[in-house]
């Protein structure tokens, strides 16, 4: 009886981590954490893996017997889908459109929000709180709410199927965040530096250009990235405001790779891969300044 009790106790002490010696407990926790991290990483990575796999598999392999086993995937690699989207479809044209629209949106948003942020921080005026609320309220406007009336207005003034038309629509989404960000950012830039510049005879314009702007750079980079993300991602507005296929940006164009009942998944995934690359390059290059910017920006 005593003997079995002792065994039971030993078993209990093995399973109950509270009774394990400290070092073993730490070890068990560490392995547990690693298992959890690995599973989470796999879950988050799998769709990305699958996108790449489907882009380099022959059409029949995707539709008939798809396999997730890496070795089987490697046995039938083809770049056919990548070739087809350039040869059979106007992929380069849509890519170009997307880039042009994003660049216009970035330049205008960064310029307008830097100017506005500076003015809001440095110049006293009545109704500043109301203005702050108005900015944040417009930050909530969903694309569909704006795009549906924009379609009719743009139609009247001939802005449908134009770069500036879609870029300005994107700016409506990115500018509230941009202004807010720069407003908060300029508050962290001490006015003393500018005052010192004024003492030395610099004009307001010069102190803005040579003192304030360089210090606000991380904020501007964050606004630029945010605007890029908005523009590059936008499907809703592009679908509505760019009905002409040759003017379309990538998001609405990519999903049209279908014919009657055939969906060209390989081509769609090849386009998806190429479309996902710019955001990666940008973010990993600028990781530090983004984090810095977003920490100050709050939102």
């Amino acid at each position: 009886m005593v003997y079995t009790d002792r065994i039971a106790n030993q078993i209990a002490s093995l399973t109950d981590s509270d009774k394990l010696p400290f070092r073993q407990k730490q070890k068990l926790r560490k392995y547990g954490l690693y298992v959890l991290v690995t599973v989470t990483c796999l879950l988050f990575m799998f769709p990305v893996y699958w996108m790449i796999v489907a882009s380099i598999q022959p059409y029949d392999a995707i539709i008939q017997n798809p396999t997730w086993v890496p070795l089987d995937v490697l046995s039938q690699v083809t770049i056919g889908s990548y070739v087809q989207i350039f040869v059979n479809r106007a992929f380069d044209r849509w890519y170009f459109n997307s880039i042009v629209v994003a660049i216009i949106a970035i330049i205008v948003t960064v310029a307008a929000s830097t100017l506005a942020g500076y003015g809001l921080t440095r110049v006293e005026f009545r109704g500043r709180k109301t203005f702050a609320r108005l900015i944040l309220f417009s930050y909530m406007f969903p694309p569909i709410l704006l795009a549906f009336p924009q379609y009719q207005i743009w139609q009247q003034i001939g802005w449908l199927n134009t770069y500036h038309g879609i870029a300005i629509a994107h700016i409506a989404l990115s500018l509230p965040f941009g202004m807010w960000m720069m407003w908060k950012f300029f508050q962290t830039v001490p006015i003393a530096y500018e005052e010192a510049a004024w003492m030395n005879g610099a004009s307001r314009f010069h102190s803005f250009k040579d003192v304030a702007i360089p210090m606000a750079k991380p904020g501007m980079v964050a606004v630029a990235i945010f605007t890029f993300a908005v523009s590059w991602n936008d499907f809703t507005m592009a679908t509505i405001l760019l009905p002409n296929q040759s003017m379309q940006t990538l998001p609405p164009a990519v999903q049209t790779f279908t014919e009657q009942n055939t969906v060209y998944w390989g081509q769609i995934m090849a386009a998806s891969v190429l479309m996902s690359i710019p955001p990666f390059l940008l973010v990993y290059k600028l990781q530090e300044s983004i984090l810095e910017g977003f920490r100050t920006g709050g939102l």
Partner: peptide
Amino acid sequence: TIGPALALMILAAFLPV
């Protein structure tokens, strides 16, 4: 200096709403 931003917001957001 908030002029440009305000003009853009009026054209692209407030007017459509």
